[in-house]
Design a protein around this nucleic acid. Structure first.
Length: 638
RNA sequence: GCCGACGUAGCUCAAUUGGCAGAGCGGCUGACUUGUAAUCAGCAGGUUGGGGGUUCAAGUCCCUUCGUCGGCUCCA
């Protein structure tokens, strides 16, 4: 007999080898029907897998966060089964894991699967679901497994890497797959599935390996969850900054002549300048001094910095008078030259040097993506030169800075702390001190963070920040990196209180990260409807007919002189048409001016959200909007 | 870079089996003088991404090149 402890704390004795399914059935038939799997001592179990020793058992139903892992994994198998049915036995199966919002499976087969084939595969999957095939788990020796999977080269390769002597495989109808599990008890349990896309993927993500065909899909326990997810994808598509951006005349690309290098149009440049202005205010507040460095510098600099050795592939080069130059991919070497241009006392530290540095990095053609991944972009970069003792304080200041900046956009965020990788520079003690300083700063800030062991840069540990947008998507933006290498390479120092030369620590940090990228995130987050302070145009003036253009011009002058960004629509169109245009450009406020306004000197203000406020005194409107802008408010005032 | 899909007017998209390149929006011109999400009419706009080939004939078929899109991290 074994002892089973349930989540409510109750204990019961069962026969050894009892399954979670049987336990569930004993509790209630309803629970058994809803059960998808179980958590046994924290490990996910199939419903019918025997429990061999004293355990805590929690039955998983579709309400539990673990549920999708189980049923999506099963759906991945169902998809593989469908593909084998449709394309024949010569399909070679690779891997089919669960991912954040769904699953995929990689196949190696002669025929090309295209998006057009997805409905066919989906239909076959639904058939398999309808067949409600029982899913069985088998434990076999590795030798037996090699025999069983002798026609499946990828499975054999996976077997090579498994250290345990026994492995498990799962079988449903005619289909079986090497798999750790767990799975649903039968293929009929989850019905709400959708195949999303096909793509190529290298075996084990390594581009030296064969390119396989990958099918992505998703599955949900409830139909409305699936619908909601598909709706979210639709919404994300509608907000795609690559579509909205050109439509709102924010930016463009010229694909032939400057691929992956954005051009900002007048409306976009206004937003960017507001972002820079905001950032400058904060930089000033947090004690930074702005510098400006050259875009291209002699190749010698890049040899000394190590970029030639480690980053050459991503750099652009140019030549003049037989001298080789590199276009800067990073700002640090330039900043170091400024640091080196004078002698610092320990009293001067920390030195906080910032730059809106435009950098160029060659990115492979397949990875560029709108404003999110480009070849030329602007970093809100800064380098802090300080003593080891100052690291923690400085990190905390950077985190405060980050918090203040992100809050202004309403973003929540999380952080990752990446520690010493195997291949690293500098002694381990320095790493320890530095990592500890980062960790302490994170603790003090109270933000959510997780540790990525061994994921730091070779020159120092780092913290990355991920913001969450209005659709719940995460984006990496800010980064704080400690650097022990650059100060060594450039032999920089400060004079300590014993008049001895000391090596400062260098902290790289960026908060927006890339202005271009952050701009793209903002476009998607606000779906193009920027808060007033960021809006390219803040007020649209719409004369009822050309009789009122002079009055409209006067109003324009007034608002313009108050520092508002105003658009006067003097076109010969109807009011409705001009309202529509302003609406499409997502201009926050619209003022129609006609006979009534001339008489009363009071105005009706319409917002892009469709609200209309009547009979406003102009001075009140100006005051309110100016206040809204000054506060960088996320909400409209009316 | 690699796998797959795609590239037609400024934008969104049409164009039977290869058979006269079209529409809406936008633009221009004119009429209308407009009251809170599209007034009406006329006109202009194209080497069908570039280059090469097959054919009596290519937007359509083949080759090549450039670019765009979905992916290539999630380890049975």
């Amino acid at each position: 007999m074994i002892k089973i402890i349930l989540p409510d704390g109750s204990e019961k004795e069962y026969k050894k080898g009892i399954s979670a399914g049987e336990i569930a059935r004993e509790i209630s038939e309803g629970l058994f029907r809803k059960a998808l799997g179980a958590l046994v001592n924290g490990e996910l179990y199939d419903l019918n897998r025997p429990i061999e020793s004293d355990s805590t058992v929690k039955i998983i139903t579709d309400k539990d966060p673990e549920a999708p892992v189980i049923f999506r994994h099963t759906i991945a198998h169902i998809m593989a089964q469908a593909v084998v049915r449709l394309y024949g036995k010569n399909v070679k199966l690779a891997i089919g894991p669960v991912i954040e919002n769904g699953f995929y499976y990689d196949f190696d087969l002669e025929e090309k699967i295209s998006e057009d084939d997805l409905p066919k595969i989906e239909a076959e999957m639904k058939k398999i679901i309808k067949e409600n095939l029982p899913i069985e788990r088998f434990v076999i020796s590795k030798e037996e497994a090699k025999e069983l999977f002798k026609d499946q080269p990828y499975k054999l390769e996976l077997l090579e890497d498994i250290e345990d002597e026994t492995v498990t495989y799962y079988k449903q109808g005619e289909f079986f797959d090497l798999c750790r599990g767990p799975h649903l008890p039968s293929t009929g349990k989850i019905k709400h599935i959708k195949l999303l896309s096909v793509s190529g993927a290298y075996w084990r993500g390594n581009e030296k390996n064969k390119m396989l065909q990958r099918i992505y899909g998703t599955a949900f326990a409830k139909k409305d969850q699936l619908d909601e997810y598909l709706k979210m994808l639709e919404e994300a598509k509608k907000r795609d900054h690559r579509k909205i951006g050109p439509k709102l005349e924010l930016f463009m690309f010229e694909n032939e002549l400057a691929p992956a290098m954005p051009f900002f149009l007048p409306r976009g440049a206004k937003v960017i300048n507001e972002l820079l202005e905001f950032s400058r205010e904060l930089h000033k507040k947090y004690g930074y001094e702005e510098v400006i460095t050259p875009l291209i510098m002699n190749i010698k600099l890049w040899h000394q910095s190590g970029h030639w050795d480690h980053y050459k592939e991503n750099m652009y080069f140019t030549e003049k008078d037989d001298v080789q130059y590199a276009v800067k991919p990073m700002n640090c070497p330039g900043h170091i030259l400024i640091y080196k241009s004078k002698v610092y006392s320990y009293r001067d530290l920390p030195i906080r040097m910032s730059e809106f540095g435009k950098v160029h990095r060659y990115e492979r053609s397949g990875v560029v993506h709108g404003l999110f991944r480009v070849r030329s972009f602007t970093q809100d970069d800064a380098h802090i030169y300080c003593t080891k003792e100052q690291i923690e304080d400085e990190i905390i200041k950077v985190m405060d800075f980050t918090n203040e900046l992100y809050s202004a956009f309403g973003f929540e965020y999380e952080a990752d702390l990446s520690t010493m990788p195997e291949d690293h520079m500098g002694d381990e003690k320095t790493w320890e001190v530095a990592t500890e300083a980062l960790r302490k700063a994170l603790e003090k800030s109270g933000i959510n963070y997780k540790i990525n062991e061994g994921d730091g840069a070779f020159y120092g540990p780092k913290i990355d920040f991920h913001i969450k947008d209005s659709l719940g998507r995460k984006w990496q933006c800010a980064t704080i990196q400690l650097d022990f290498q650059m100060p060594e390479r450039f032999d920089i120092h400060y004079v300590d209180n014993n008049n001895e030369l000391q090596r400062p620590v260098m902290i790289h940090r960026a908060i927006y990260g890339s202005i271009e990228r952050f701009f793209g995130i903002l476009i998607e987050n606000f779906a193009g409807a920027f808060p007033t302070w960021l809006s390219p145009e803040q007020v649209a003036i719409i004369p009822v007919s050309d009789k009122y253009i002079d009055a409209a011009k006067e109003l324009y002058e007034k608002l313009d002189s108050e520092g508002l960004r105003v658009k006067l629509d003097a076109s010969n169109a109807t009011v409705g048409y001009k309202i529509r245009n302003a609406q499409m450009l997502k201009i926050p406020y619209m003022i129609v001016i006609g006979e009534k306004e001339l008489e009363t000197k009071k105005y009706n203000v319409r917002t892009r959200e469709g609200n209309t406020v009547e009979d406003l005194e102009l001075e009140d409107f100006i005051k309110t909007v100016k206040e809204e802008i000054k506060n960088r408010s996320l909400k409209l005032s009316y």
